[in-house]
Design a protein around this nucleic acid. Structure first.
Lengths: 218, 218
DNA sequence: TGATCAATGTTATTTTTTTAACAAAAAACT
DNA sequence: AGTTTTTTGTTAAAAAAATAACATTGATCA
């Protein structure tokens, strides 16, 4: 229906909307592969455990219009979300810490064709350095500066033990990284021109435990 | 100073406050181990990249009072947060999917003495079943019902491939689990008496990429 | 001792996020 | 043809979360 590019101010898209767009796209891709051509807001909503209004509102914010009574065109919407959240030139990603978590992340990504590609891993373990693990070459931590510059890697994912978190973050920043995703339980500081996202698995589990406890004491 | 138990209504603690309390405690434990006895709100805030006001507000909500000009008593605060978010009887946790991510989580938890203990892992790989991995016994998926009931496991962490997510969630619910932490990129549905927390690593990375792209196009 | 300072605790305000309300319009039905 | 239904798009309201404002108070210092 409406394929015109809208004067949407991406600057002001709410953080939560960005997250949901990523999730909508993932759900839409599955629908697309099944051959589904259209989808209703309430169908998307059901998958994500949110309301249809929220879906429509998010899509309004990115200037996408569906077809009345037919819903949204799956293919078009996938493409538009891509235009919004992907960088058309693609972005390269490095994983620092090729332990279980680092390798789990690589495998999660494997196969997901995307504008994001994990092109390097770093570790200090000599047994790992020089190997290709799950398709990603593992380099020594000392090579970080060089590789990140040479490959123009813009995002670093930290999956090292907590004790190394601060040093690794500093190294990444010095190497010129633009965004960090920190899976370490240790919060780190970065200059404000570097985007930092932190996620702490222990906190998530403790949160689940709290609400389970609350349910128990009802 | 103020050790009286307050008539705090835990029911109404904001979700975000719960998450921060977990993080405060982690930071406080490190301080405690270093021998630090008191801490200011702005010190906690700095560690967590938030404002001192927010810290004080959170502590107000749980009814904790510090000492003017001395800050908060580290030990007392650790204990109080424990009373709030921990279940005093302890809660047992199972991990479904003993791949890289599952084992990474076990290792993250190892050593963190806590009221939460991961007591069982489940997998379908015969090479893993029957082994003790990182201190956690791995059982066959078929034994899920039995083990969860026998051990009184209340929380399940899902670290299986996306295709198994829905089935695993149903099995966990049938086995009587009270809370699920889903690390699968596939959203699942549970009855509303089961607390569900979902986290999607791909979304997080795409979010970082979006903000990096935004910074680039400034 | 009085003034200043540095911290807490709480209320008020603002911002962000979600939800509700409802108009509009295409399709389906009678 | 006209009425009903169903779905979108948007504005309005509510709820949740973060921030600001500020009163208070004990320590410090001139």
């Amino acid at each position: 229906m409406n394929k015109d590019s809208k004067p949407v101010s991406l600057k002001h898209l709410p953080h939560k909307t960005i997250e949901r767009l990523s999730q909508y796209r993932r759900a839409l891709l599955i629908c697309f592969e099944k051959g589904q051509t259209h989808i209703y807001s309430h169908e998307i909503a059901k998958i994500q455990h949110i309301t249809a209004v929220q879906v429509r509102r998010d899509l309004m914010l990115i200037g996408y219009s569906g077809t009345l009574r037919k819903g949204y065109n799956v293919k078009d919407l996938i493409e538009l979300i891509g235009q919004i959240i992907d960088d058309d030139k693609g972005i390269k990603v490095a994983i620092v810490g090729m332990g279980n978590l680092g390798r789990a992340l690589i495998n999660y990504f494997a196969g997901k064709r995307s504008k994001l590609s994990i092109v390097a891993g770093f570790d200090t373990n000599p047994d790992k350095i020089g190997n290709v693990m799950s398709g990603v070459p593992c380099y020594s931590a000392e090579e970080m500066n060089e590789i990140i510059a040479r490959e123009n890697i813009q995002i670093g994912i930290m999956t090292v033990p907590a004790d190394f978190a601060v040093d690794v973050a500093n190294n990444l920043v010095n190497a010129g990284i633009k965004g960090i995703l920190n899976y370490t339980p240790k919060p780190v500081n970065v200059p404000k021109d570097v985007y930092l996202e932190e996620y702490d698995m222990i906190t998530s589990l403790e949160k689940v435990a709290f609400f389970v406890k609350m349910k128990n004491t009802d």
